[in-house]
Amino acid sequence: MAENGASAREAAYTEGVPCWVDAQLADVEAGKRFYGELFGWTFGESYGGTVWAYHDGEPVAGLAHKPDGRLPTVWTVYFATPDAEALSRRILAAGGQIVTAPIPVGELGVAALAADPEGAVFGLWQPGTHQGFGQRHEPGSFARVELYARDPEAAGAFYEGLFTDALVGPDAEPDFGRAPLTEVFPAEMPPHFLVHFRVEDCDAALGTVNRLGGRAQAGPFDTAYGTVGMASDDQGASFAVLQR
């Protein structure tokens, strides 16, 4: 990572800005095949067996093996913070939960998992040598994350209380939005974050998802921030594709 690139990322990823995503998968090799073809990603090993995905040579996501088959197969978004311990205390004070306490990830940084008062799980990332996305808002990389909540107004108050930059990201891009759980989702679906990846053609991306053994779940449909399609990969991890 070039020094000027690292300093730019450090300045961009202020507290509350989505800075990284990873998928917990039963079969990482299958994940590499699926997402490699869907988004044009290449892959390299990172810390502790986690695989990093690259687009145009820049890190855009992580794929990790689930340590326990009973754990959900999911994409998780991580919000930047200069102090994961302090933010964890604020989350608890605001009525959230700490799922996994802050733990060092080698020299890369410190990671933690938390949940908001409705149970939506998200990550915290305190950077070390790894600041976050090397590329975003471009085809094949992170575009935004949407929180689907039973009470979007209460959820908004929770995150606004934690993060000054939570609802509008850097570079004038709306990185974080919120919406109510609707009939698009199964009745038993809990509140959750849905990671969106930018694509050139939403219809074509959903077609590729189906061809690769995944499932196009909804869309394409138009939103205020672009055309969206909801999908799951061939292992059941849900995500969205976004065409601006």
Rank of each mutant, 00 (worst) to 15 (best):
L71T: 02
A64Q: 02
S88T: 04
E85R: 04
G106L: 02
T100W: 10
C19I: 05
R70T: 11
G123H: 03
V105R: 09
G96E: 01
P67R: 02
A101N: 07
W52G: 14
G40N: 01
A64E: 09
S88C: 15
G62E: 03
Y78C: 08
A12H: 03
W125P: 07
W20R: 00
A8P: 04
L38P: 01
D56F: 07
E118R: 04
D68W: 12
G49H: 00
P18N: 02
Y54I: 06
G106K: 03
Y47C: 10
R89I: 13
G123F: 04
G62L: 10
L38W: 03
L124A: 09
D116A: 14
F122Q: 06
R9P: 02
A80H: 01
G128C: 06
E58D: 08
G95R: 03
P59G: 09
L108G: 12
G36N: 01
V21H: 07
G109Q: 08
K32G: 08
G106Q: 05
C19F: 05
G119Q: 05
Q126N: 11
G57C: 07
E118A: 07
W75C: 08
A61R: 03
G95M: 12
V60I: 15
D83W: 01
T100F: 15
G109L: 05
A112P: 05
E15L: 11
A64C: 07
G62D: 01
W52R: 13
P59D: 15
D56A: 15
G57Y: 07
G57A: 03
E45L: 15
P82Y: 04
V110S: 07
T42Y: 01
F39Y: 00
L87K: 06
A8G: 05
P82R: 02
A64I: 09
P18Y: 00
F122I: 07
E29Y: 03
E37R: 11
W75G: 08
F39A: 14
T76A: 13
P117I: 04
F34P: 03
V21K: 04
G16T: 06
T81G: 03
G119F: 05
G48Y: 09
I91K: 01
W41Q: 12
L87T: 08
G69A: 15
A12L: 14
V60R: 00
T42C: 11
G95A: 10
W41V: 08
P102K: 06
P127T: 11
V99L: 15
R70H: 12
D83R: 00
R70A: 14
